[in-house]
Amino acid sequence: MTMRNAAGVIFFAIVAVFFIFSILSLHPFGDFGEEGDKYYLEPKMDDYIIDNAQNETGANNAVTSVVFDYRGFDTLGEATVLFTAVAGVILIFRRLGK
């Protein structure tokens, strides 16, 4: 019991220290930085989508054009996961509810 708890505490502490040090290396919230900064980011793909989504897909909502057009395969996999989960729930509860 105590062995297991000690192992849990050590694992928890390692993960906590890892997270706290890793957030310090991220860019500050909402600030993508200037050129030359350590955390400088240039989201070229997102800027392309924001600029061209209206011409290419005709949708005013860029998020919808990403979900169903640029990244349709993600949505296909998500639909498969939802279908599988519903099938699993029905499979489990059908025998219980008889």
């Binding site: 600029d51 209206q54 011409n55 897909t57 005709g58 949708a59 005013n60 054009s65 169903f68 639909a79």
Partner: peptide
């Protein structure tokens, strides 16, 4: 119908297959 860049008017007769896919996924 096509939409110009940065037009802020809402026109429901746009976007091709996106509304159809929205309806299908909504049903699902």
């Amino acid at each position: 119908q096509s939409v110009e860049y940065a037009s802020t008017t809402a026109n429901i007769n746009t976007a091709g297959t996106l509304p159809l896919m929205n309806i299908a996924v909504g049903l699902k």
